[in-house]
């Protein structure tokens, strides 16, 4: 594994982790764990294969492990309330905020597929291989995730008026 090749993947890993976890520090911790595990399991990587998919697969597995075997992260309530994710100021910030909070309402497995498609522009087959699931599952999670996100966003934009959603 080439140092420059792995260095080039770090920003992408960070972007995805940030989008998955919503929290900068937790995301960088996950990236760090991913890189450490990648080094320790380098023998599993086949030279010439897609390093990005391999690293994202490691990150996915670590995240699954983390959800099963949680770690302590204590914070005071005040700190937590002021924990605003860093993001450049943009005119459409409100809309972006909406999609961010809507994203947090998706189940992990839908969010994961949605982000790999949207941010990483990974092919469906690559996502299936990375996550270790059948491609049909990728498609159904993508479809359900997108629809759910759309409905949440519609609901938020529909102000106080009730809308009938089939």
């Amino acid at each position: 594994m080439d140092n420059r090749a792995i260095l080039a993947e770090i920003p992408r890993l960070r972007r995805y982790a940030r989008a998955m976890l919503g929290d900068r520090a937790a995301a960088d911790d996950l990236v760090q764990d991913t890189l450490e595990r990648a080094w320790s399991r380098l023998f599993q990587w086949r030279a010439g294969s897609d390093m990005r998919a391999w690293l994202f697969g490691i990150m996915h597995n670590l995240r699954v492990d983390q959800l099963r075997r949680p770690r302590l992260a204590t914070q005071s309530i005040d700190e937590d309330d002021f924990d605003v994710p860093t993001r450049p100021t943009q005119t459409d910030e409100l809309e972006l905020r909406d999609i961010e909070s809507a994203l947090n309402h998706l189940p992990d497995e839908q969010r994961e597929v949605l982000l790999l498609v949207a941010l990483e522009e990974m092919g469906y087959a690559d996502i299936a291989a990375t996550l270790g699931i059948p491609i049909g599952t990728v498609m159904s999670r993508l479809s359900r995730g997108r629809e759910r996100l759309r409905l949440i966003m519609n609901g938020e934009h529909a102000s106080a008026r009730l809308r009938v959603v089939r």
Binding site: P11, R87, P88, Q90, E95, L96, A118
Partner: peptide
């Protein structure tokens, strides 16, 4: 949605990397 997600999270790509992460680009 796709476009919004990219504008929301792409700025992370341009953030300077924390040292502990750049260090891990080497074994």
């Amino acid at each position: 949605q796709k476009l919004a997600l990219r504008s929301l999270f792409n700025p992370v790509l341009d953030e300077p990397l924390p040292e502990n992460l750049t260090a891990l680009a080497s074994p």
